[in-house]
Each structure stands twice: as C-alpha cells, then as structure tokens.
Design a protein around this nucleic acid. Sequence first.
DNA 1: TATGAATGAGACTTCATTCAT
DNA 2: AATGAATGAAGTCTCATTCAT
Lengths: 210, 210, 210, 210
Amino acid sequence: MSRAQTARRKRANGVESWQRILDAAVEIAGERGYEGTSIAAVSAKCGLPASSIYWHFKNKDDLIAAVIERSFETWRAAVVLPGETAGTPLETPRALATNVAKSLVDAPDFLRLGLMLALERRPEEPRGRAVFLQVRDIVRDQVTETIRVLFPELDEDAVRILTSYAVAGIDGLFVQQEMTGEAVDLVTLFELHAQLVYEAAIRMATRSQV
Amino acid sequence: MSRAQTARRKRANGVESWQRILDAAVEIAGERGYEGTSIAAVSAKCGLPASSIYWHFKNKDDLIAAVIERSFETWRAAVVLPGETAGTPLETPRALATNVAKSLVDAPDFLRLGLMLALERRPEEPRGRAVFLQVRDIVRDQVTETIRVLFPELDEDAVRILTSYAVAGIDGLFVQQEMTGEAVDLVTLFELHAQLVYEAAIRMATRSQV
Amino acid sequence: MSRAQTARRKRANGVESWQRILDAAVEIAGERGYEGTSIAAVSAKCGLPASSIYWHFKNKDDLIAAVIERSFETWRAAVVLPGETAGTPLETPRALATNVAKSLVDAPDFLRLGLMLALERRPEEPRGRAVFLQVRDIVRDQVTETIRVLFPELDEDAVRILTSYAVAGIDGLFVQQEMTGEAVDLVTLFELHAQLVYEAAIRMATRSQV
Amino acid sequence: MSRAQTARRKRANGVESWQRILDAAVEIAGERGYEGTSIAAVSAKCGLPASSIYWHFKNKDDLIAAVIERSFETWRAAVVLPGETAGTPLETPRALATNVAKSLVDAPDFLRLGLMLALERRPEEPRGRAVFLQVRDIVRDQVTETIRVLFPELDEDAVRILTSYAVAGIDGLFVQQEMTGEAVDLVTLFELHAQLVYEAAIRMATRSQV
DNA sequence: TATGAATGAGACTTCATTCAT
DNA sequence: AATGAATGAAGTCTCATTCAT
C-alpha cells in the first residue's frame, strides 16, 4: 500500500472533488431536469464553490453530459453483471427482464434524467440529450442482436418492430413506477412484458416461415 | 404634462386574452418543460405583457396547471370523439389503439408536458404535476373499466396488472416516438400493443376459469 | 327611520365603500408604513377591486393622507371626549395624561403610522406626512396653550422647551409601548411624565419670578 | 458623495466592497426605511451591480440587519468614547445626556432606521427589527445599571420605571428632532431630561427610605 | 488544484395607475 | 358608482459564467 493513500485528507484531490460534484449533480438533475439543475444548487450540495465546478467541467452542458455518462455506467453495471451468469437461451429473456427491472428500481437516475432530457425540445439541444440518445442506441442494438440470435428467421422489419416494442415497454413501465411510486409490481410487469414480446416473436417467426 | 397617447387599441377582452396566453404557453411548455417555460417567453409569443399574464393566472404554477388541463381536454376530444362510432366490443381494443396512436401524433403536448412534469421530483411539486396525475387516473380508470367489461371473469389482480401494462405501453410508445421523431410505426406498434394485451387477457381469463 | 336604510344591502353605496377602503388601509398602513402599503393589499383586505379604490381616492398618497386624517379624528375623539368633564386646573395635567395614555393603547394607528411617515426622509415627501405634521402642530399648540394658562409667568422660551419636552415624552412612551408590547406601565409612565413636566414648570416659573 | 474614486475597479476586494455596500445601504435605509430601500438604489449608490450585493449578503433582510449592526457600533463609539473621561458620579448623568444628544445629532441613522423598523408590525418581522430590539436591550441594561449604581436604595420596580422613562425620553426627543429638523434645542432638552429623571430618582429613593 | 469575488442577463412577481365599459 | 382588464416600470433574487489569485 502506498503511503499517499492514507495521507492527510482534505488535501486537494482532483478525483475526489470530481466525484463529489457528480454525486451532487446526479441527485439534483435526477430530481429537477436540465433547467432545474443550477450550478449553485450543485455547489451547495457538494460543498465546493461554483467556480470549482467550472474547473472540473467546461460548463453546465458538460456537467450534465458527464452525469448521464456516469449514471449509465452505474446502471449498466447493475443490469449486466448479474446477467453474466445467465443460463440457457430460453431462459434469458425472463431473467434479463428481472434484472432490468431490479436495476431500474435501484438506480433510476440514469433513465429518469435521460427521459426528461429526451422529452424536451429546445432549440439548441443539450449535449446530455445526445449522450443519452447515443447510449440508448447501444442498448437498443443489444436488444436487436438478442432478438436476431433467438429468432434468426425473422425479417428485418419484424426485428425492428419487436425491438421498438420491447424498448418502449421498458420506458413505459419505468415511467409508471416513477409516477405512482410503487415498486411492487415492477418485476411482475417486466416479466409479463418479456413473455409477451417473446410470444409475439414466436408467432411472427412462425408466420414468416409459412 | 403631455404623454404619448399612441392609442394602441387594446380592447379589454378577458376570454380572448386567456386563450392567447394558454395557446402560447402550451406550445412553449410542451417543448421545454416546467422550468424551461419562462413567463417572458410566453409573453413574447402571445403579445401580452408579462403583467397581463399575472392578471389571468395567479403564478407560473397556475398557468402550467391550466395548460395541462386544457391540453388534456383537447387530447380527450381527439381520442374520444372518433371512438364514439366504434363498432362491436371485440373490435374496440384495436380501433381504440388506432385512435389513441393518431391522437398522440396530432396533439402530443398534453402527454409530453405531463410526462416531463411527472418525471420530476422536486421537493415542492408543481400543481401541474398533480393535475396531470389526476387526469391520468381518470384515463386509467377508463382502461380498467374497459378491461372489466371485456373480460368479466378476470380477478382484481389480473385487471390491475393488465391495466398497468396497457397504460405503460402507451407511455413507452409515445416516448419512443418523441425521441426518434418517427411517427411512421406508431400506429403499427399501438396495434401490436393492443393485440398483445388482448391475448394476455384472454389467456389470464382462461387460466382463472380452470 | 327611513326605509332606505334597511333596503337590500350590497347596493352600490359610496360612503360605505369609502369606509371599507379606509378601514382596510388604516390596518395595513399601520402595520407596514407607506411603502409597505400596496393598493393590491388594501384591495384584498376590503374586498373591492383596485380600480374602485382609485375611484374613491386620487392616488395612493391621497389614500394614506385620508387614513391619517380619519385616524386622527378617531384618536382625538378618544382623548378629548372623556377630558371634557375634567375638574380643577390642578388636576388637569394628570387626568389628561391618563386620558392620552389610554387613548394610545386603544387606537394607536394614528400615531404609529404618523411616526413612521415622519421618520422617513424621501425626496418627495408624501402628503400624509405633511398632514401628520400639521395635525401634530395643532396638538402641540394646545399643549402650549395649556402651559401658558397654567403658568402665565413663564417666558416664551421656557414654554417652548416645556412643550417640546412634554410632547416628546408622549412620543417616546408610545414608541416604547409599541416596541415592547407591554401596555401595563403606560399609564403609570404617562402620569410620571405629567408630574415631572408640572414640577419643572413650577420651578422654572419660580426662578423666573426672582 | 465621493464615490467616483477610481474608474473601473476590477480588483476583487471583498472587505472593501462589503463596506461600500453598507455605506450606501445605511444612507438609503436611514432615509427611506425597510421597504423604501431597494437593492437597485443601493447598487446605484455603491457602484456595484445588484448581483454583487447578493454575493455579500444573503438577501435584503440580511443587508438591513447588517446595516443596523454596523450603525449601532458607529453610534456606540460616538457616545461611549467621549464618556470614558467622565468625572464624578454626580456629574455623570448630565454629561452622559450631553454625549447622547450630540451623538444623535451626528449619527442619527442607527436610531432613525431602528425606530422605523420597530414601529412596523408586519407578519414576518424583518431580522433587522430583531437586531435593533436586541441592541436596544443592551443599551437599556446599561441605563438600568447606571441607575442602580447611583441609587442603590431604589427597589426593582422603581428602577424599571425610571429606566423606561429615561429611555423613552431619548426616543421621544430624537423623534422630535427628526420631525422638526431643529437640532438647536436637542442638547438643552436632553439635559432637562437627565435632570428630571435624576430628581425623580432622588425623590423615589427618599420616599422608599421612609 | 482550486476559489473568492464579480457580473450582465434574466428569472418570477408586484407595483401604482389607467381606461373603456 | 363602480370594475375587469391591461400595462410599463420596478421589485427581489438567481442564473451561468469569468477571472485574478
């Protein structure tokens, strides 16, 4: 162990400040959206002066984008790691649904803030919105890939429709939970969703083979 | 003392002004959300000075709430009226899905602004959020009722789950459209959604009869 | 009794509205001073729209001046009427002190608002301030006259000094009561004040005779 | 008056700015009271933008409270320092009266603003009012102590009455000066006041010894 | 690696007042 | 004898951002 690690705290520590700022920003932005997130509020919550925030981030846009990025990583870790031990392909959709549901109950900042940004339509779109949509496309591609692997006989159109429906369901169920505050049924609903998509895929595949 | 008497013909017409303010506000709030909607912007768009807006609405909260209320009425008119000529009960779900899809393409302000408000979690929740959630519950109750009528053998739990899933799907599909900007598939996806919910209901009903 | 008096209320009644406005204004101005008294607040308290206030009073200045005038009349009635049955000259100062003390406990709006106005030094002085100072001079003259009658041998200078001191004491004691909120000692203190002024006058008169 | 010192000073100097803001605020608030003191006016007078005022003071309330605090210190210095060379106890009351009178002629902002605040009775009392009443209690305690030392045989009740009367006289005489604008007689009146209180104390002490 | 101080622009809201009805 | 509606000016305060240290 290096001695620097245990040296007196409170010393200027770039990484720690960076983390503290993001921790504060993720909380506020997750509550109030882009416009509602003021540098002053972030400063008050993290204890660092506003000018220090500007030392770490070029501007507010940059900060929000970083928030999205980091909270996406957090969420991805929560949803992917437990899934890596997933079993047979047939079980995967349901197990994945459960994982996704749980991850959204635990770390909802990513999706909440992202959706808020995505729903806005301001003249110059914030970089955070672009980052979210980009990151979202990655997830979407993974869903598409999964569907392709599970149902290779589906044509492109069907895959696209199913992907859209699958992802939209996630959003919708998440939104509902955020609105009603009940986390109770979320897992049930996600599993229902997974099952319905699965069956729809089977039927589509069958039909296209005819 | 002489005063500039450029008689800007400003006939006092409360109702018309009220409408003009709301027209402007609905547009801006639908694009930028609660915080992004400044009174100055509304004033600029409707042509009335900011102080006149405060004659008609107690404050910004009040204005946004009124925006939600009125845009809900607009939306409801768009989705309900064409549905009143709906045919047999069996056809209703699909026809309704088509109607809802079309209404959301045409007049999306209500749901976009509502979802933005609903996703926020600020300490002092805006009245508009409460209005949206309230109005949303009305819609939800109608969905519940429809399901009960179509599938009387379903137990309470199943009805609740199906209602949640049906409504969540609407939100999710709408959000997706807003994000990608493609209105193309929306109707298709809504019909798929209606069909899947319908089939799920049938299966649940069958199972519960056993 | 005329029948008009008992006719249906709520009819437009100039005098009654005028009273209601003043009643509201006296309360607010007594609490918040000149600048703190907004027409909107008066309107809210009296139930009449702001424009109606402007029908009865030329402007805010006019309203405040009227408030001073009316509350002075109220106060004068309270302090003078009981004094008219006052007995011998020797008793008068003490009895008057008691009367004044009581009147200031009961109807303090006049003096409180007046002092607030008088202490301010704005570029263009409100008419209310002038009215107060004017009215105050009347009271002062009465004090002067009383002293002259009681102690005819005093020279002009002594009379002026005594008058100033007597009136200043009233203000000071009133201010103290307003600040501490204790009405308990007010009468005692006023009587002490009267006595001290009386004795000072006697000594001055004696000295000037030598 | 001497504000245009150096053109365009950009140097960050917190203490100096703080002083400049208070200097401007004390002048305006002393003239116009709480409501009449606008941040814009203070900004114009001190040359710093309004937003800079908010860097140094949380809000207007905070600013006014600071004004009271600082102008009290100024006043206390003016009244206490010359008094430290005061001679024998017997002379003290008269000498003190002279000092107080002079200090109120020279630096009247403290008391003028304080009295304005104290006379107001708004629902949410400004912090400045509390500060003034607090500071005033300190002065009152000193008066009480002085009386106790000079007349140890007086009972508590008599001391309280005399203190109240002594302090009230100061307020009243000050108010009178502010209203009439004549500083001429102020010293004379203060000395008369001191003498009358002194004699009243002697008589009370004598009586209580009987 | 920060941060105290500053700042113009703009936020929401209230102001006193007017005017057509 | 009123009043609904309107309005420019001004109110307090926060905004994102900069810059010298």
